[in-house]
Amino acid sequence: MEKIGLQTIKFSNPVTILETASIVGPKEADGPIAKYFDQCLDDEFWGEKTWEKAESKIIKETVNMAITKSKIPAQDIDFCFAGDLLNQCISSSFGLRELNIPFFGIFGACSTFVEGLCLGSVFIDGNGANNVICAASSHFCSAEKQFRFPLELGNQRPPTAQWTVTGSRMCIPY
């Protein structure tokens, strides 16, 4: 690979995406692209006691779903690049620790997924890896809890207020 200009890398072996998976929350399931998600949840808890645990479960199940779809066993995946919004990327690191895949926790907020793709591709093109996982996770309730106001607070949001996504997405480039 070589660097072109200020912020472009050109790969000698094109990296491709093998498989993807996504799980989203109820609000996303009501949206216009609902049919493209692999699984839509009914509520934000998914049987867990806290939102952080729910977010961990979402990313764990997403990764397992993609690994199953790709038919590559988890032992053959070389690295995992994942991140979320919380302190210490705690939901991704706790959710994916049982995978036993070397884990790079990354933080890029909304750009985490593409950041993972860039880094994973560099690893693959540089012959550091054959298969990697790139994942990103987000949960409206846990993000509101950490960054904004408690959900039960009776404040009014303006019409342009943004709503953090509840969902997780991952893909396996090779």
Partner: peptide, 20 residues
């Protein structure tokens, strides 16, 4: 939010949220 009801809500809601 302005009457005392808002103040009570602003204390109970974080208490509920952070119970975990």
């Amino acid at each position: 939010l302005v009457p005392i009801t808002g103040f009570a809500n602003s204390i109970v809601s974080p208490a509920m949220e952070y119970k975990s």
